[in-house]
Structure formats: structure tokens, C-alpha cells
């Protein structure tokens, strides 16, 4: 059993029980608790083939409204031009533009991106509204050369690398659950973030594991994901 357990902190992933059942080793930094690994030596290699990572406890936020794009532009962010695309910031965070008036900001994999906290603590302009993105959605990553192929079993959008470029976003149905799928490659490894209604996290996790079986996909810890870069 891991020497660190999710109950140590108030913020617990909806998938904590799944992780414990899989023998997860957790890592903790302040109130941020993540799965470091599942005790396998080959997780970094696994992540290059097909890996599933729970990032739900990492910081993230969102803003929307007619004033949101202009306000965000004043916050030293490199904003994407088109809806359904994203840009990576210098502090490692990722800004996703979900519509002309909606932004989603994800932290780096260490939860250290300064922009999230800064945005959450900066007064917003009129017609700019914050969204509780850290809690409304779970955040999973699916990595590796087989990721797009696996997605084709549960998602009707063509996510193959030559059809869905790095930085593209699809808001669609994944295993019948409404989801935001973001392609954000880690180094040279394909990586998709998937953000889905948090209450469906276990359902989605189970569907993904089932769909991954034929490609030898497995859950891996965040350490394996960090090792890709």
C-alpha cells in the first residue's frame, strides 16, 4: 500500500478507489495529490504505446463571456486564434479556446503553472465569468502511438494524427459522455487530454480500460507522463 493515501488531503480524485485497487503509489505536494506510478518499472515505455493517466486533481480554471477574450488578452497569455484550438504557455499551462467566448486553462503536469492562480485571483472585467473547471470535469490523459486507434472504439471524431493536429480540440461524445478532447503531444509522443463530467469519471475510466485491452494499454502514473518530455 502507498505510504501516502488520498484521504490525507481534502481534494480527492473521483478515481481514488480505482487507483488504490490498482496498487497506486501516490505523490503529494501540499494539497495536491497524484498517482506517481502503479509500481511498474516499464510505465514510461507503456506511456509511449498506450497509457491512461488521471490528472483530475491538478489545477485548472476557465472563463467565459463576451468580455473574456479581451480580459484574458490583458493577462499575459498567448491566446489561441480559433475556437477548438489551444496554445501552450511559457509556464507550461495550456489555454484552450472552446468558443469565441470561452477559455479553459490547464496547469502543467506538476501543478506549478503560475497563471492559474494569478487568473483566479485577478478581478475580471465586465462580461467575464469564471468557471469551476477544476471540479466540473475529471481530467485524464491518454498517451502513446495507439491512442487514436483506441479512441476510434469510443469516439466518432477522427483523431488520427494526420487528421487531428496537435493543438486541436474536439468537443464531442466519448463513450456517450460529453467530453472535451485536446491533443497535446508530450515530446514526440501522442497525447490526448480528455475532460469529462466529473461524476462520470469512473464510468469513463472503465470504458477506456476496456477499449485499451486489445492494444495492451494500461494506467500509468504521472511520472511516466512527465518522463515523455
Amino acid at each position: 500500500m502507498s505510504s501516502i493515501m488520498p484521504t490525507e488531503v481534502p481534494r480527492r480524485s473521483q478515481l481514488s478507489r480505482r487507483h488504490i485497487e490498482l496498487g497506486a503509489e501516490f505523490e503529494r505536494s501540499g494539497y495536491l495529490l497524484l498517482v506517481k506510478d502503479y509500481g511498474s518499472q516499464t510505465e514510461a515505455t507503456q506511456a509511449q504505446i498506450l497509457g491512461l493517466v488521471d490528472l483530475s486533481t491538478l489545477p485548472r480554471t476557465g472563463f467565459k463571456g463576451a468580455g473574456a477574450p479581451d480580459w484574458a488578452a490583458t493577462q499575459a497569455l498567448n491566446l489561441p486564434q480559433q475556437p477548438n484550438t489551444c496554445t501552450v504557455q511559457t509556464d507550461g499551462s495550456l489555454v484552450a479556446k472552446l468558443s469565441h467566448q470561452e477559455l479553459l486553462i490547464l496547469s502543467d503536469l506538476n501543478g506549478k503553472s503560475a497563471s492559474i492562480e494569478r487568473l483566479n485571483n485577478t478581478p475580471v472585467d465586465p462580461q467575464t465569468y469564471s468557471l469551476p473547471r477544476a471540479d466540473s470535469h475529471c481530467w485524464l490523459a491518454i498517451t502513446g502511438s495507439q491512442a487514436a486507434e483506441m479512441f476510434s472504439k469510443i469516439c466518432a471524431v477522427d483523431l488520427r494524427s494526420h487528421k487531428f493536429a496537435n493543438g486541436e480540440i474536439a468537443q464531442t461524445s466519448v463513450a456517450k459522455a460529453n467530453s472535451i478532447v485536446i491533443r497535446n503531444d508530450q515530446g514526440s509522443t501522442h497525447c490526448f487530454y480528455i475532460l469529462t463530467d466529473v461524476s462520470s469519471a469512473e464510468f469513463l475510466w472503465d470504458c477506456l480500460l476496456d477499449a485499451m485491452v486489445e492494444y495492451d494499454g494500461r494506467p500509468v502514473g504521472v511520472a511516466a507522463l512527465r518522463a515523455l518530455v
Binding site: R12, Q14, I154, S200, D210
Partner: peptide, 29 residues
């Protein structure tokens, strides 16, 4: 084959099970 029936759980779900709750599904919840 392989149909999807989304199921939704609250963050307290396992506390209910541990307290011996009989769960029922209301919609997907």
C-alpha cells in the same frame, strides 16, 4: 455489443457503500 450506459457517482459514493447503503439509479446517477 459494447453499448455505453453512462453512470454518475458523487464524490461521497464510497462512503455510502461503506455505510451499507442500498444504491439505486436515478437517471444515470
Amino acid at each position: 455489443g459494447r453499448s455505453f450506459y453512462p453512470a454518475r457517482r458523487s464524490n461521497m459514493h464510497y462512503r455510502h457503500l461503506e455505510a451499507g447503503a442500498q444504491m439505486l439509479q436515478a437517471g444515470a446517477w
